[in-house]
Amino acid sequence: MASSHQEILRTELRWGAVMGVLVAGILGLIIYAALALHISPPSNVERIDPKTLQLSDEFTEQNLGTQVSGDGRVTARIVATQYAFLPPCVAVPLNRPITLRFASPDVIHGLLIAGTNVNTMVVPGYVSQVHATFTQPGETPMPCHEFCGLGHSAMLGRVQVLPADQFKPDAQGRVACAKH
């Protein structure tokens, strides 16, 4: 047993130092992931008025869904509303970067796509933006994961990950989910 008050404090400080190193190591990993792998949370402080969202240019109903722009970048625009995503099914390309942009005209929603890093809140007043590359083909659910009212449990979208030969944009660059 420790023989003096000072010695007890010394053992505590030694333990504290070990724990400090441990915490620094964890932080180091987080910093490494951010610097080398560009892993950071979906922050996108971009404001948009939820009250007039459906009158806006970008989030007007006709403009929702997946679109390939002239320079080949793929962007999907999705509205999360009570109690559905629009479009209910989002077509995304396999192994090709895509930007997902979400907005809500009413209350707080959220979504995740299991098996990917796609996870964001959709807060009325903001455009939520996630950058992702899907590496598994097939269909996967995209549920709302934040309480948005009594219909929340049924708010379930889908994502179709299409290989290059099925990801065919139309004349306007738009891509929709394949029908079953």
Partner: peptide, 10 residues
């Protein structure tokens, strides 16, 4: 990303 869409609200 940018968007050139124009509003066509329902």
């Amino acid at each position: 990303p940018s968007s050139e869409a124009a509003a066509t609200p329902v």
